[in-house]
Design a protein around this nucleic acid. Structure first.
Lengths: 213, 213
DNA sequence: GTCTATAGAGGGATAGAC
DNA sequence: GTCTATCCCTCTATAGAC
């Protein structure tokens, strides 16, 4: 019987992992200090090393979960051969917008760590395989036979992700107030699929102005 | 008479600054070591501190120049009230593509440093003012009266910049070979303006299929 | 499992000779 | 201006008591 497990805090190991996730994300690997992580988790250095052996190892664990997060929910959508391209576009926008509003600094963090240390990501190849061989890619290629589907993949992902990548710039320079940002994102969640359908010369969803089904 | 100034290397100060730029960009601020910077510049720690007083100060100098680089060439284009929106779109694509092919890791580096330390960039506000008050923004607003021009600003910048942001991911996962990347970018340089004109419902450039002047 | 204390290495900065 | 040697602090990791 492990009844009162959720009272107050989880166990030390989970608290440490969560604190690490936050600290690494905020400062980056090199600038993050395991002393601060331990303190944020309300424990100490020795315990952190007891559970995770080293800073590097703790980082790898946290990082793998972060990368998973960026793909796990989206892959089933990309590979569903029962949905139209239009529906996929809408779902992709919804899923990423939801996730990124919850974790706005995840993209830059992940991208930067890969750029500064690409060797650590050879094992993530499977994700790529799953994306590049997906039903979504096939549909893009069939819809626009003149253009490499990777262009549309990147373009659409950029429509959704790029505002989050630019968020720090927009806010540091005062281009947009913090509260307005969420508002802008909510608008884009609807606009991005429409834009993409325009680029692909698709009629749009049945619910708006198309003909059948 | 300072005739033979360009022989072999520049002076130590310039070599140090250049080495710093490379090292900071590759590793990020925290992971970069001034010992390595000094070594790469073929000199030593003491001289680096003699010229720049501290790692932090050297970084600020290099960083300011990097941010400038991202704006200096583009602002005149955005503010030229004698060019059509179509022409601006083409020029923006050309300028950024050229610059980024030369400095592919600049975007993530700058974005990450801003995300991890936003306070250091309050002084860059002037750039933002210049962009948000530009002729380009006015033209976007007039062309699509229903949409906040910041959406189109972001969308178009994303079309051009986002592939560079994703470059490390695409290459680490093997989605695209290093040589193919340049090829893909060259294609996008032409495609991006066309896509954007489609989104804005513009007829296109005179040279392609439009009517007058 | 959890803690205190400390070993050990690395990196930023400076002193001082030339 | 340029160098060698060194100071000193910070951070990771571990030893060892409880």
């Amino acid at each position: 019987m492990e009844q009162e497990k959720e009272t107050q805090h989880q166990n030390s190991e989970e608290r440490l992992k969560e604190a690490a996730r936050i600290e690494f994300m905020r400062k980056g690997y090199a600038a993050a200090k395991i002393r601060d992580i331990a303190k944020a988790a309300d424990t100490n250095l020795a315990l952190l090393n007891y559970y995770f052996r080293s800073k590097e190892n703790l980082f790898q664990i946290v990082m793998a979960e972060n990368v998973d997060k960026l793909f796990e929910n989206i892959l089933p959508v990309l590979n569903d051969s029962n949905t139209s391209l239009e529906v996929k576009l809408v779902l992709i926008s919804k899923l990423y917008t939801k996730m990124l509003l919850d974790e706005p600094s995840l993209p830059i963090f992940v991208l930067n760590e890969i750029q500064t240390n690409p060797e650590g990501f050879g094992n993530q190849i499977r994700f790529n395989q799953n994306v590049m061989n997906s039903h979504y890619i096939t549909q893009l290629a069939e819809t626009d036979k003149d253009t490499d589907p990777i262009h549309h993949l990147i373009t659409y992902l950029g429509m959704i992700l790029f505002p989050f990548v630019m968020k720090p710039v927009m806010q540091a320079t005062g281009a947009i107030l913090p509260e307005k940002f969420t508002n802008m994102i909510k608008q884009r969640e609807k606009l991005a699929p429409v834009w993409m359908m325009t680029l692909l010369n698709l009629p749009g969803l049945p619910s708006s102005n198309s003909v059948d089904v």
